[in-house]
């Protein structure tokens, strides 16, 4: 085994290793879809957040615009306070936007859908989304459905 052949093999090995790491980062994980740009934060209050968690997606018309960055419980008003980090390039959500918690598919993960309103003023860092719809809890729906049938 000459020195040169050995060096070539090690070079191939290192290149393959780095290529594999790169492939896993770019093609397998969501690194390429996560923009690391600056964000601004808005909050919304929900009666019930269902299965929402930190890093859940925030979407507008189905497009990912940000992620949930924090979830707190406000004991004075008995509501959940959800902080969302929205990417700066999506800066045109009117102040009367509506935030709703939806479920992707019947049993999929939960996300927040932002629907812009008609005002000309836009949400800024630290703004509060006034209109917030709680998560639809499957058990509650079924319970209501059953009680309606019974009361008929």
């Amino acid at each position: 085994m000459t020195r040169q052949i050995l060096e070539i093999w090690v070079g191939v090995f290192v290149a393959a290793g780095i290529a594999a790491l790169f492939m896993l980062a770019m093609k397998v994980s969501n690194l390429s879809t996560v923009s690391t740009g600056d964000t601004y934060e808005i909050t919304a209050r929900f009666d019930n957040i269902g299965g929402l968690s930190i890093r859940s997606p925030v979407k507008a018309s189905g497009v990912l615009v940000g992620r949930v960055s924090n979830i707190k419980y406000d004991k004075d008003y008995s509501v959940a306070v959800v902080t969302m980090s929205i990417q700066n390039r999506f800066d045109s959500f009117s102040i009367d936007s509506r935030a709703s918690i939806y479920t992707a598919g019947l049993l999929g993960e939960q996300y927040i859908e932002l629907v812009p309103g008609i005002e000309d003023n836009y949400l800024e860092d630290g703004s509060d989304v006034v209109m917030a719809d709680s998560a639809l809890i499957l058990e509650n729906l079924i319970g209501r459905f059953i009680s309606e049938i019974i009361s008929k």
Binding site: L24, V28, S29, N30, S32, T33, R55
Partner: peptide, 19 residues
Amino acid sequence: YWAQMQKSVDFHEDFMNGV
């Protein structure tokens, strides 16, 4: 196959933790 994988494999939480 690729899209679903990319959607749910998180760079920090899954890939980096694996590394």
